[in-house]
Design a protein around this nucleic acid. Structure first.
Lengths: 195, 195
DNA sequence: CCTACCGATCGGTAGG
DNA sequence: CCTACCGATCGGTAGG
Protein backbone atom coordinates (compact mmCIF):
# COMPACT_ATOMS: atom_id res chain seq x y z
CA UNK A 1 0.00 0.00 0.00
CA UNK A 2 1.31 3.41 -0.85
CA UNK A 3 -1.58 5.64 -1.83
CA UNK A 4 -4.50 6.63 0.33
CA UNK A 5 -4.95 10.36 -0.08
CA UNK A 6 -3.16 13.69 -0.08
CA UNK A 7 -1.20 12.79 3.03
CA UNK A 8 0.23 9.85 1.20
CA UNK A 9 1.18 12.06 -1.73
CA UNK A 10 2.95 14.47 0.61
CA UNK A 11 4.96 11.61 2.03
CA UNK A 12 5.92 10.45 -1.44
CA UNK A 13 6.94 13.96 -2.36
CA UNK A 14 9.17 14.27 0.70
CA UNK A 15 10.66 10.86 -0.05
CA UNK A 16 11.39 11.90 -3.64
CA UNK A 17 13.38 14.91 -2.52
CA UNK A 18 15.29 13.13 0.22
CA UNK A 19 16.01 9.93 -1.70
CA UNK A 20 17.37 12.00 -4.58
CA UNK A 21 19.56 14.15 -2.38
CA UNK A 22 20.88 11.69 0.19
CA UNK A 23 20.08 8.33 -1.35
CA UNK A 24 17.64 5.67 -0.15
CA UNK A 25 19.85 4.35 2.63
CA UNK A 26 20.89 7.87 3.59
CA UNK A 27 17.26 8.78 4.26
CA UNK A 28 15.46 7.59 7.38
CA UNK A 29 11.74 7.42 7.92
CA UNK A 30 12.37 9.95 10.67
CA UNK A 31 13.82 12.35 8.06
CA UNK A 32 10.75 11.96 5.88
CA UNK A 33 8.40 12.46 8.80
CA UNK A 34 10.31 15.56 9.88
CA UNK A 35 9.54 17.24 6.55
CA UNK A 36 5.84 16.85 7.32
CA UNK A 37 6.28 17.87 10.96
CA UNK A 38 5.23 14.48 12.35
CA UNK A 39 6.92 11.45 13.96
CA UNK A 40 8.22 8.49 12.04
CA UNK A 41 5.73 5.86 13.27
CA UNK A 42 2.85 7.99 12.03
CA UNK A 43 3.99 7.42 8.47
CA UNK A 44 2.87 3.81 8.74
CA UNK A 45 -0.74 4.89 8.80
CA UNK A 46 -0.31 5.92 5.18
CA UNK A 47 2.42 3.77 3.66
CA UNK A 48 3.27 0.14 4.11
CA UNK A 49 7.02 0.45 4.30
CA UNK A 50 10.04 2.43 3.20
CA UNK A 51 10.46 -0.05 0.35
CA UNK A 52 6.96 0.77 -0.86
CA UNK A 53 8.00 4.39 -1.32
CA UNK A 54 11.05 3.45 -3.35
CA UNK A 55 9.12 0.96 -5.44
CA UNK A 56 6.34 3.44 -6.21
CA UNK A 57 8.82 6.09 -7.32
CA UNK A 58 10.90 3.79 -9.50
CA UNK A 59 8.09 1.90 -11.19
CA UNK A 60 6.04 5.03 -11.82
CA UNK A 61 9.05 6.82 -13.28
CA UNK A 62 10.00 4.06 -15.69
CA UNK A 63 6.41 3.62 -16.79
CA UNK A 64 6.06 7.35 -17.33
CA UNK A 65 9.26 7.46 -19.38
CA UNK A 66 8.03 4.65 -21.60
CA UNK A 67 4.63 6.28 -21.97
CA UNK A 68 5.94 9.68 -23.03
CA UNK A 69 8.46 8.01 -25.30
CA UNK A 70 5.75 6.08 -27.14
CA UNK A 71 3.67 9.22 -27.38
CA UNK A 72 6.63 11.14 -28.81
CA UNK A 73 7.50 8.47 -31.36
CA UNK A 74 3.93 8.50 -32.63
CA UNK A 75 4.29 12.03 -34.00
CA UNK A 76 5.86 10.88 -37.25
CA UNK A 77 7.03 7.99 -39.39
CA UNK A 78 10.33 9.69 -40.09
CA UNK A 79 13.10 8.37 -37.82
CA UNK A 80 14.77 11.77 -37.61
CA UNK A 81 11.54 13.39 -36.48
CA UNK A 82 10.92 10.56 -34.05
CA UNK A 83 14.38 11.01 -32.62
CA UNK A 84 13.87 14.72 -32.20
CA UNK A 85 10.60 14.11 -30.40
CA UNK A 86 12.00 11.30 -28.26
CA UNK A 87 15.00 13.32 -27.13
CA UNK A 88 12.70 16.24 -26.45
CA UNK A 89 10.41 14.12 -24.30
CA UNK A 90 13.34 12.49 -22.53
CA UNK A 91 15.08 15.75 -21.71
CA UNK A 92 11.86 17.45 -20.76
CA UNK A 93 11.02 14.68 -18.33
CA UNK A 94 14.50 14.85 -16.90
CA UNK A 95 14.18 18.59 -16.42
CA UNK A 96 10.78 18.42 -14.74
CA UNK A 97 11.28 15.20 -12.78
CA UNK A 98 15.00 15.37 -12.03
CA UNK A 99 14.61 13.74 -8.63
CA UNK A 100 12.71 10.73 -9.91
CA UNK A 101 15.09 10.08 -12.79
CA UNK A 102 18.07 10.29 -10.47
CA UNK A 103 16.46 7.81 -8.08
CA UNK A 104 15.48 5.47 -10.90
CA UNK A 105 19.07 5.43 -12.11
CA UNK A 106 20.77 5.20 -8.74
CA UNK A 107 18.75 2.96 -6.46
CA UNK A 108 18.23 -0.24 -8.42
CA UNK A 109 20.32 -2.19 -5.96
CA UNK A 110 18.32 -1.05 -2.97
CA UNK A 111 15.05 -2.09 -4.50
CA UNK A 112 13.96 -5.51 -3.22
CA UNK A 113 12.82 -8.30 -5.46
CA UNK A 114 10.56 -8.81 -7.27
CA UNK A 115 10.31 -5.07 -7.96
CA UNK A 116 13.97 -4.91 -8.94
CA UNK A 117 13.44 -7.35 -11.79
CA UNK A 118 10.33 -5.50 -12.81
CA UNK A 119 12.19 -2.19 -13.05
CA UNK A 120 15.07 -3.85 -14.88
CA UNK A 121 12.59 -5.13 -17.44
CA UNK A 122 11.08 -1.69 -17.87
CA UNK A 123 14.58 -0.30 -18.37
CA UNK A 124 15.36 -2.85 -21.02
CA UNK A 125 12.09 -2.08 -22.75
CA UNK A 126 12.91 1.61 -22.75
CA UNK A 127 16.42 1.06 -24.10
CA UNK A 128 15.07 -1.21 -26.83
CA UNK A 129 12.56 1.42 -27.92
CA UNK A 130 15.43 3.88 -28.42
CA UNK A 131 17.50 1.34 -30.22
CA UNK A 132 14.58 0.64 -32.57
CA UNK A 133 14.43 4.23 -33.75
CA UNK A 134 18.14 4.35 -34.48
CA UNK A 135 18.13 0.95 -36.17
CA UNK A 136 15.27 1.87 -38.42
CA UNK A 137 16.90 5.15 -39.34
CA UNK A 138 20.00 3.23 -40.35
CA UNK A 139 18.00 0.67 -42.32
CA UNK A 140 16.18 3.38 -44.23
CA UNK A 141 19.49 5.01 -45.06
CA UNK A 142 18.61 8.17 -43.22
CA UNK A 143 21.15 7.76 -40.40
CA UNK A 144 24.77 7.00 -40.74
CA UNK A 145 25.80 3.45 -40.00
CA UNK A 146 27.37 2.16 -36.76
CA UNK A 147 28.28 2.59 -34.06
CA UNK A 148 24.53 2.39 -33.62
CA UNK A 149 24.61 1.10 -30.09
CA UNK A 150 27.00 3.72 -28.81
CA UNK A 151 24.97 6.44 -30.48
CA UNK A 152 21.87 5.12 -28.75
CA UNK A 153 23.57 5.16 -25.36
CA UNK A 154 24.80 8.67 -25.99
CA UNK A 155 21.31 9.81 -26.95
CA UNK A 156 19.83 8.32 -23.80
CA UNK A 157 22.53 9.97 -21.74
CA UNK A 158 21.53 13.40 -22.95
CA UNK A 159 20.22 15.49 -20.13
CA UNK A 160 21.56 13.16 -17.47
CA UNK A 161 24.69 15.28 -17.36
CA UNK A 162 22.52 18.21 -16.31
CA UNK A 163 22.12 16.70 -12.90
CA UNK A 164 25.58 15.15 -12.84
CA UNK A 165 27.89 17.92 -13.94
CA UNK A 166 25.96 21.11 -14.23
CA UNK A 167 24.56 23.06 -11.37
CA UNK A 168 21.77 23.81 -13.82
CA UNK A 169 23.50 27.07 -14.61
CA UNK A 170 22.97 26.91 -18.34
CA UNK A 171 20.88 30.05 -18.42
CA UNK A 172 18.37 28.29 -20.64
CA UNK A 173 14.71 27.69 -20.04
CA UNK A 174 13.56 24.09 -19.96
CA UNK A 175 12.05 24.36 -23.42
CA UNK A 176 15.19 25.86 -24.93
CA UNK A 177 17.11 23.03 -23.38
CA UNK A 178 14.74 20.50 -24.89
CA UNK A 179 15.01 21.97 -28.38
CA UNK A 180 18.75 22.32 -28.37
CA UNK A 181 19.30 18.80 -27.16
CA UNK A 182 16.95 17.56 -29.85
CA UNK A 183 18.99 19.33 -32.53
CA UNK A 184 22.20 17.99 -31.06
CA UNK A 185 20.71 14.52 -31.17
CA UNK A 186 19.81 14.51 -34.85
CA UNK A 187 23.16 16.01 -35.73
CA UNK A 188 24.75 13.07 -33.95
CA UNK A 189 23.18 10.39 -36.10
CA UNK A 190 22.01 12.15 -39.23
CA UNK A 191 25.23 13.04 -40.89
CA UNK A 192 28.16 11.12 -42.30
CA UNK A 193 31.43 11.29 -40.41
CA UNK A 194 33.80 13.99 -41.55
CA UNK A 195 37.47 13.21 -42.03
CA UNK B 1 45.78 7.19 6.99
CA UNK B 2 44.80 4.89 4.20
CA UNK B 3 47.94 3.35 2.72
CA UNK B 4 50.44 1.21 4.57
CA UNK B 5 51.14 -1.76 2.31
CA UNK B 6 49.59 -4.45 0.17
CA UNK B 7 47.02 -5.24 2.83
CA UNK B 8 45.82 -1.70 2.62
CA UNK B 9 45.58 -1.93 -1.16
CA UNK B 10 43.53 -5.11 -0.86
CA UNK B 11 41.13 -3.35 1.46
CA UNK B 12 40.80 -0.44 -0.95
CA UNK B 13 40.18 -2.84 -3.80
CA UNK B 14 37.41 -4.61 -1.89
CA UNK B 15 35.91 -1.26 -0.96
CA UNK B 16 35.96 -0.16 -4.59
CA UNK B 17 33.95 -3.17 -5.69
CA UNK B 18 31.45 -3.04 -2.85
CA UNK B 19 30.94 0.73 -2.84
CA UNK B 20 30.29 0.61 -6.58
CA UNK B 21 27.81 -2.25 -6.35
CA UNK B 22 25.89 -1.48 -3.17
CA UNK B 23 26.81 2.12 -2.48
CA UNK B 24 28.80 3.58 0.40
CA UNK B 25 26.03 3.33 2.97
CA UNK B 26 25.02 -0.09 1.68
CA UNK B 27 28.48 -1.43 2.41
CA UNK B 28 29.57 -2.20 5.98
CA UNK B 29 33.11 -2.56 7.23
CA UNK B 30 32.10 -6.15 8.01
CA UNK B 31 31.33 -6.68 4.31
CA UNK B 32 34.73 -5.37 3.31
CA UNK B 33 36.49 -7.49 5.90
CA UNK B 34 34.58 -10.59 4.76
CA UNK B 35 36.07 -10.24 1.26
CA UNK B 36 39.53 -10.55 2.82
CA UNK B 37 38.45 -13.31 5.18
CA UNK B 38 39.01 -11.28 8.33
CA UNK B 39 36.88 -9.50 10.95
CA UNK B 40 35.79 -5.90 10.72
CA UNK B 41 37.86 -4.50 13.63
CA UNK B 42 41.07 -5.79 12.02
CA UNK B 43 40.59 -3.32 9.18
CA UNK B 44 41.44 -0.49 11.55
CA UNK B 45 45.03 -1.65 11.73
CA UNK B 46 45.35 -0.54 8.12
CA UNK B 47 42.86 2.23 7.49
CA UNK B 48 41.74 5.10 9.65
CA UNK B 49 38.04 4.97 8.91
CA UNK B 50 35.40 4.06 6.35
CA UNK B 51 35.43 7.70 5.27
CA UNK B 52 39.14 7.46 4.52
CA UNK B 53 38.42 4.72 2.00
CA UNK B 54 35.77 6.78 0.24
CA UNK B 55 37.94 9.87 0.23
CA UNK B 56 40.94 8.04 -1.19
CA UNK B 57 38.86 6.56 -4.00
CA UNK B 58 37.13 9.78 -4.97
CA UNK B 59 40.12 12.11 -4.80
CA UNK B 60 42.42 9.70 -6.61
CA UNK B 61 39.85 9.16 -9.33
CA UNK B 62 39.24 12.82 -10.02
CA UNK B 63 42.95 13.59 -10.01
CA UNK B 64 43.60 10.70 -12.38
CA UNK B 65 40.86 11.90 -14.74
CA UNK B 66 42.33 15.38 -14.81
CA UNK B 67 45.85 14.03 -15.35
CA UNK B 68 44.95 11.80 -18.30
CA UNK B 69 42.84 14.58 -19.73
CA UNK B 70 45.74 17.04 -19.70
CA UNK B 71 48.00 14.41 -21.19
CA UNK B 72 45.48 13.73 -23.95
CA UNK B 73 44.95 17.39 -24.77
CA UNK B 74 48.70 17.86 -25.16
CA UNK B 75 48.83 15.65 -28.26
CA UNK B 76 47.82 18.47 -30.60
CA UNK B 77 46.95 22.11 -31.03
CA UNK B 78 43.94 21.23 -33.15
CA UNK B 79 40.72 21.29 -31.10
CA UNK B 80 39.23 18.40 -33.08
CA UNK B 81 42.27 16.25 -32.41
CA UNK B 82 42.25 17.29 -28.78
CA UNK B 83 38.61 16.34 -28.50
CA UNK B 84 39.23 12.95 -30.06
CA UNK B 85 42.07 12.32 -27.61
CA UNK B 86 40.13 13.61 -24.62
CA UNK B 87 37.08 11.46 -25.35
CA UNK B 88 39.38 8.51 -25.93
CA UNK B 89 41.08 9.00 -22.58
CA UNK B 90 37.77 9.59 -20.81
CA UNK B 91 36.09 6.51 -22.22
CA UNK B 92 39.18 4.38 -21.73
CA UNK B 93 39.35 5.36 -18.09
CA UNK B 94 35.67 4.65 -17.68
CA UNK B 95 36.11 1.22 -19.23
CA UNK B 96 39.10 0.27 -17.09
CA UNK B 97 38.04 1.95 -13.85
CA UNK B 98 34.28 1.63 -14.05
CA UNK B 99 33.87 1.16 -10.30
CA UNK B 100 35.83 4.26 -9.38
CA UNK B 101 34.02 6.48 -11.84
CA UNK B 102 30.67 5.25 -10.62
CA UNK B 103 31.63 5.97 -7.03
CA UNK B 104 33.02 9.40 -7.90
CA UNK B 105 29.73 10.28 -9.56
CA UNK B 106 27.40 8.77 -7.01
CA UNK B 107 28.79 9.31 -3.53
CA UNK B 108 29.52 13.03 -3.33
CA UNK B 109 26.89 13.47 -0.66
CA UNK B 110 28.32 10.79 1.56
CA UNK B 111 31.77 12.30 1.51
CA UNK B 112 32.39 14.44 4.61
CA UNK B 113 33.79 17.93 4.48
CA UNK B 114 36.33 19.16 3.69
CA UNK B 115 36.93 16.37 1.17
CA UNK B 116 33.53 17.01 -0.42
CA UNK B 117 34.46 20.55 -1.35
CA UNK B 118 37.83 19.35 -2.59
CA UNK B 119 36.23 16.81 -4.91
CA UNK B 120 33.68 19.34 -6.08
CA UNK B 121 36.53 21.67 -7.01
CA UNK B 122 38.29 18.90 -8.93
CA UNK B 123 35.03 18.20 -10.76
CA UNK B 124 34.63 21.83 -11.72
CA UNK B 125 38.20 21.91 -12.93
CA UNK B 126 37.62 18.84 -15.06
CA UNK B 127 34.42 20.23 -16.55
CA UNK B 128 36.13 23.53 -17.31
CA UNK B 129 38.94 21.77 -19.14
CA UNK B 130 36.36 20.13 -21.41
CA UNK B 131 34.54 23.36 -21.93
CA UNK B 132 37.79 25.04 -22.93
CA UNK B 133 38.38 22.64 -25.80
CA UNK B 134 34.90 23.14 -27.16
CA UNK B 135 35.04 26.91 -26.71
CA UNK B 136 38.33 27.18 -28.53
CA UNK B 137 37.08 25.00 -31.35
CA UNK B 138 34.14 27.34 -31.75
CA UNK B 139 36.32 30.47 -31.61
CA UNK B 140 38.61 29.10 -34.28
CA UNK B 141 35.64 28.35 -36.48
CA UNK B 142 36.32 24.64 -36.50
CA UNK B 143 33.28 23.63 -34.45
CA UNK B 144 29.74 24.63 -35.02
CA UNK B 145 28.38 27.32 -32.71
CA UNK B 146 26.20 26.75 -29.67
CA UNK B 147 24.79 24.95 -27.84
CA UNK B 148 28.38 24.70 -26.66
CA UNK B 149 27.54 23.89 -23.08
CA UNK B 150 25.09 21.11 -23.88
CA UNK B 151 27.56 19.60 -26.33
CA UNK B 152 30.18 19.62 -23.60
CA UNK B 153 27.88 17.87 -21.17
CA UNK B 154 27.00 15.32 -23.80
CA UNK B 155 30.66 14.68 -24.54
CA UNK B 156 31.43 14.16 -20.88
CA UNK B 157 28.48 11.81 -20.58
CA UNK B 158 29.88 9.51 -23.24
CA UNK B 159 30.75 6.17 -21.79
CA UNK B 160 28.78 6.77 -18.61
CA UNK B 161 25.81 5.12 -20.26
CA UNK B 162 27.88 1.96 -20.54
CA UNK B 163 27.53 1.41 -16.84
CA UNK B 164 24.07 2.88 -16.63
CA UNK B 165 22.16 1.27 -19.44
CA UNK B 166 24.26 -1.38 -21.05
CA UNK B 167 25.21 -4.65 -19.47
CA UNK B 168 28.43 -4.11 -21.39
CA UNK B 169 27.08 -6.34 -24.12
CA UNK B 170 28.34 -4.24 -26.99
CA UNK B 171 30.60 -6.96 -28.33
CA UNK B 172 33.39 -4.42 -28.72
CA UNK B 173 36.83 -4.45 -27.21
CA UNK B 174 37.73 -1.53 -24.98
CA UNK B 175 39.89 0.01 -27.68
CA UNK B 176 37.19 -0.26 -30.34
CA UNK B 177 34.84 1.39 -27.90
CA UNK B 178 37.29 4.19 -27.34
CA UNK B 179 37.80 4.84 -31.05
CA UNK B 180 34.15 4.75 -31.94
CA UNK B 181 33.19 7.09 -29.14
CA UNK B 182 35.94 9.45 -30.24
CA UNK B 183 34.55 9.51 -33.78
CA UNK B 184 31.06 10.03 -32.46
CA UNK B 185 32.34 12.93 -30.40
CA UNK B 186 33.90 14.87 -33.24
CA UNK B 187 30.86 14.27 -35.42
CA UNK B 188 28.83 15.88 -32.66
CA UNK B 189 30.61 19.20 -32.70
CA UNK B 190 32.47 19.34 -35.98
CA UNK B 191 29.66 19.69 -38.45
CA UNK B 192 27.01 22.27 -39.16
CA UNK B 193 23.45 21.32 -38.33
CA UNK B 194 21.46 19.86 -41.18
CA UNK B 195 17.92 21.05 -41.79
C1' DC C 1 -1.50 11.25 15.44
C1' DC C 2 1.47 9.96 19.69
C1' DT C 3 5.01 7.50 23.16
C1' DA C 4 7.38 3.54 24.30
C1' DC C 5 9.78 0.01 22.75
C1' DC C 6 11.64 -4.25 19.85
C1' DG C 7 15.69 -6.61 17.63
C1' DA C 8 19.18 -5.78 14.37
C1' DT C 9 22.97 -3.48 12.59
C1' DC C 10 26.19 0.10 12.29
C1' DG C 11 31.27 2.34 12.82
C1' DG C 12 34.59 2.24 15.87
C1' DT C 13 37.41 1.26 20.43
C1' DA C 14 39.66 -1.45 24.21
C1' DG C 15 42.70 -4.58 25.26
C1' DG C 16 45.26 -8.26 24.32
C1' DC D 1 44.87 -10.64 13.88
C1' DC D 2 41.07 -11.65 17.50
C1' DT D 3 36.77 -11.26 21.01
C1' DA D 4 34.02 -8.36 23.60
C1' DC D 5 31.76 -4.44 23.78
C1' DC D 6 30.23 0.81 23.32
C1' DG D 7 26.58 4.23 21.99
C1' DA D 8 23.84 5.46 18.18
C1' DT D 9 20.58 4.70 14.75
C1' DC D 10 17.71 2.04 11.97
C1' DG D 11 12.75 0.16 10.21
C1' DG D 12 8.92 -1.20 12.14
C1' DT D 13 5.19 -2.68 15.88
C1' DA D 14 2.11 -2.30 20.01
C1' DG D 15 -1.24 -0.07 21.97
C1' DG D 16 -3.77 3.64 22.65
Amino acid sequence: MVADGTRSRDILEAARTLFAERGYLGTSMKDIAAVLGIRAPSLYNHVGSKQDLLRAIMVDTMEALIAIHEEAVAVSEDPAEQLRAAVGAHVRYQATHAHDVKIANAEIWHLDEPARSQVRDLRRRYARAWRDIVDRGVQEGRFRTPPTQLATFTLMGMGVSLGNWATSETGLTDEELVEQYAELAVSLVLQPVAG
